[in-house]
């Protein structure tokens, strides 16, 4: 919410097609939610105090509040812990909704910068997490400088990149895939 903004959500701006879009992106049980609240008190996003957390996100999605959900960064703070999926009495699979919203956000390039960084690392090095100075750390632990993963095998890494180029990454990636 904007600093000093008015705290009213305008339901007439809701977009019913957003519900259908999310259903197509994997949240196919979304409308089954009865807002019982069971996911709301063990969701790490709720416990940590994010503006949106799973119970609120499911409701906002069902209302079709596209702009609010895509502008807010909360969905990118979801831990993928899947506790909501485990306990949901209506089998809404709330976590799959988080992914659906992220997928919708990626299409309109509305995601935090570190998401792109992770994707770029994944494509370039085969590792989403690729921190500097690892060679030194590995030496300290008495291991070879590079692990026997894609980072050590250029040919295999190229094959992996070819796989990624044949996925939706080809359309979405805001960086060159070559």
């Amino acid at each position: 919410m904007e600093e000093g903004g008015v705290n009213v959500i305008d339901l007439t701006q809701a977009d019913e097609s957003f519900v259908k879009e999310l259903e197509a992106l994997g949240a196919d049980e979304l409308r089954e939610c009865i807002q019982c609240g069971k996911c709301g008190a063990t969701c790490p996003m709720a416990l940590a105090g994010l503006e949106f957390f799973i119970k609120r996100i499911v409701h906002a999605a069902n209302l079709g509040l596209r702009d609010i959900l895509l502008e807010d960064s909360s969905v990118w703070g979801c831990q993928s812990c899947n506790r909501c999926v485990e306990i949901c009495p209506m089998d809404v699979k709330p976590y799959e909704l988080i992914q659906a919203i992220r997928r919708a956000a990626m299409k309109v390039e509305s995601c935090p910068a570190n998401t792109y960084e992770g994707l770029r690392n994944l494509y370039r090095f085969g590792h989403a997490v690729y921190p500097k100075g690892y060679e030194e750390r590995r030496k300290k632990a008495g291991l070879p400088e590079k692990p026997p993963t894609a980072i050590s095998y250029d040919e295999l890494r190229k094959k992996y990149q070819e796989i990624l180029r044949n996925t939706i990454l080809e359309e979405i990636a805001p960086f060159p895939l070559d």
Binding site: K38, C39, G40, A41, T42, P89
Partner: peptide, 20 residues
């Protein structure tokens, strides 16, 4: 709006109830 999420046993015998 608060179907209970979890009940956990504490070492002092209390039960911690979490709900929204």
């Amino acid at each position: 709006g608060g179907r209970v999420s979890s009940v956990d046993v504490k070492p002092n015998g209390k039960l911690r109830v979490r709900a929204f």
